[in-house]
């Protein structure tokens, strides 16, 4: 299962960005093959509609779960339609910690 994580940098130790639409990078993690790659968020500098643009990008990567901090009101109905599960976390967690949680299940 592919999971996308919004993060503030492109390394394993960068923190999960609590903003979904305007985070600089997305970590795309495949729990079956264990592969992790980083993709730049195409809509991070957009004037408006950064959230929906990010949703489109996530869907094109084939992700089924998205880990972030907060989701805006434009984003929630889109994810519901696409059947992508939203996971919202609080506090400072790194991409590595999230990966380990995902691997353990």
């Amino acid at each position: 299962m592919i999971t996308a994580i919004s993060c503030s940098g492109n390394s394993m130790d960068s923190q999960v960005d609590t903003r979904f639409g305007r985070c600089p990078f997305f970590a795309i993690f495949d729990s079956e093959s264990g592969k992790l790659r980083f993709e730049e968020n195409p809509g991070k500098e957009a004037e408006s509609g950064a959230g929906p643009a990010a949703v489109k990008f996530i869907a094109s990567q084939g992700a089924q779960k998205i880990v972030s901090g907060e989701f805006g009101f434009k984003v929630k109905p889109l994810f519901d339609q696409l059947d992508i599960q939203m996971i919202s976390i609080e506090g400072n967690k790194t991409v590595r910690e999230i990966m380990e949680l995902l691997k353990s299940n």
Partner: peptide, 10 residues
């Protein structure tokens, strides 16, 4: 357990 908040559609 992990303190996350999640959503599962319908």
């Amino acid at each position: 357990k992990c303190g996350c908040k999640f959503e599962s559609g319908k």
